[in-house]
Write a protein that binds this DNA or RNA. Structure first.
Lengths: 342, 342
DNA sequence: CTGAAAGCGCTAACAA
DNA sequence: TTGTTAGCGCTTTCAG
């Protein structure tokens, strides 16, 4: 039961003063080589580790960052989180993860809880409810308190801070074009995230692609949903009534979901219907057929988000905020007919 | 730029002393109702929040727990993490998540980093490398320092602490029986986690079931792997050479993976081959056909783990350690022939 | 009922 | 080169 040892105790043991030990351990050159070595030896012997709370209190730095994400079961966020964790850990930071569960209230509560000295900054992707409400006071208030915030993926231009995103409009535009160029003529856009800026932008990109391709003679076809069992019915209906031959979804799961419905209705993929989704996750790689998707470089996005936030924390710079766009690309698998570069 | 306000500043503003304010805010009955109300009003006005670091330093409690998990992309761990986060958050705790990436070194580093005053306790599932090495000094050392540790899923009986697990042997035994009773005769066990206690126990359960069922006349058939591209080759070979008609895997992904290989080789699922896996994840629910699996009640397991750890933290009890077994059950879907209760 | 003061463990300015 | 001391923001004993 070798309880935590403190500097003071070490001082008694070693016959040096507390400050000498502190300096020696932090590599301060004021201390002679000789005593430094002695002190380090003793510290190691007693397995001394400076107390994090005391250090935070003194330095006003916690070396931890708060991560607020809507959920963690969606592969997209899980991959982003991996990127964040790796980068943070590499830079000596810990991450406190809060899952908002798409709830405004929980998001606010988490931020307030962490804003009082638990973290040096925030990485956040807004919950659906927050985006619907449009109330961002909890975030601006944190920023005004001097805590850096970086938003990724689900952002808002009502908030001035660093951001890391992809170009959702272009990505959806290009993905839709891929379907059209592989000779799909009735392409539907399916989305479970229509209440996020990300979902909206993707819908817009899709719409624009349809408009451009058909010179405005064909109306876009968009199906938004929130409830999966309702969606099953609806999508079955849509597939049997409209002669859909192309599906683009704003995420990964609903693409797989739609594909399974299509298959169960007897459609061949990609013979009868081509499908393309978002996020290079475990689902799309392991579906049958494997899903063609828009790769958002999720892990990379997480890494860059963490790196940028840490940069801001450590430089405490008044440099103007940046919005970094992560490149996307389409990974061609078997759920569409051909591999066409557009 | 309304910077964080401190107790001291509040004292100046309100003309009360620091200690009076502290007491009033903490609901201490020493303070008169009247001044308490005044103080609370002012505190709210200035949006006062006690500094977490200072509080931790004073109380020696951080109200956060460290979670060390091997990875986060496997649905099993993601679901456990959700359970942990929910329970912790409900009880007013934050979680610091470290991903060991199956690496001993990172696991050790993370624990050491957090053990010095950052957390009140640990929730940990061992990395593969740690289990292979069999070196648990980093864990016992933390326990000896007086920090509670609770292990879940991947545990070791070399370590004395609270645990939350499932009965891996029984679960695999029963799952194998299900295949045998649905008339499979050549059942293979496929595992990417043979280097964990969990994987071993499941293999043992499978072996016992085979032995029991065939009275020892049939040898168990086990395929362990770590590399998926190698596994693809091997499994293709196995399927074409042996007349396998049943597959049980120790996880979710390799079940889906095997199923896809089987399908691509022209086998019908479940007509020719029945498959059963572990973990009720997003993959198994959305595969085609949907996968029959052993439901480990992952989220529940996470909740109970967190709850038990917090109980230990707060009671600082010397009660003897407990090992709690989470119930499992089989969720029947379309990847096996029949629904047989055994 | 309210306030003064000590002290949690550490860092760093200042003294010696 | 080493030591003394103040103080980070809070809680809590003890005095008033």
């Amino acid at each position: 039961m070798n309880k935590k040892i403190t500097l003071k105790e070490l001082a008694v043991i070693s016959n040096f003063s507390v400050s000498t030990i502190s300096k020696a351990l932090s590599g301060n050159r004021e201390i002679s080589e000789e005593t430094r070595k002695k002190i380090i030896a003793i510290a190691k012997l007693y397995n001394y580790r400076p107390n994090a709370a005391a250090r935070s209190l003194k330095s006003q730095k916690t070396k931890t960052i708060g991560v607020i994400i809507p959920n963690i079961l969606t592969h997209y966020f899980a991959k982003v989180l991996v990127g964040i964790e790796h980068e943070a850990s590499k830079k000596g930071y810990n991450i406190i993860t809060c899952i908002s569960d798409e709830s405004y209230k929980k998001e606010v509560k988490s931020m307030e809880m962490l804003a009082s000295g638990s973290v040096d900054g925030f990485l956040i992707s807004l919950s659906k409810e927050t985006q619907t409400k449009g109330n961002y006071d909890h975030i601006t208030s944190v920023i005004n308190n001097g805590l850096p915030v970086l938003m990724f993926d689900r952002t808002s231009n009502k908030i001035h801070c660093d951001k890391v995103i992809i170009n959702d409009f272009d990505a959806a535009y290009n993905a839709t074009k891929v379907l059209l160029h592989s000779s799909c003529r009735i392409v539907i856009f399916i989305s479970p995230i229509s209440d996020t800026n990300v979902g909206l932008e993707r819908a817009n990109g899709y719409t624009q692609a349809i408009t451009d391709f058909f010179n405005g003679t064909v109306a876009p076809l968009i199906y938004n949903f929130t409830d999966y069992s309702q969606a099953r019915e609806d999508i079955e209906n849509i597939l049997s009534k409209k002669k859909v031959d192309g599906i683009i979804t704003s995420d990964e799961l609903s693409a797989i979901f739609s594909m399974n419905i299509a298959i169960s209705k007897g459609f061949k993929i990609p013979g009868d219907i081509s499908i393309i989704g978002f996020t290079d996750g475990i689902l799309s790689r392991n579906s049958n057929p494997p899903l063609t998707i828009v790769n958002q470089n999720e892990t990379e996005l997480g890494k860059i988000s963490a790196a940028n936030l840490i940069k801001r924390i450590e430089n405490n710079s008044k440099e103007s905020y940046t919005t970094q766009i992560i490149e996307t690309n389409i990974i061609y698998r078997k759920s569409i007919n051909a591999t066409i570069e557009i």
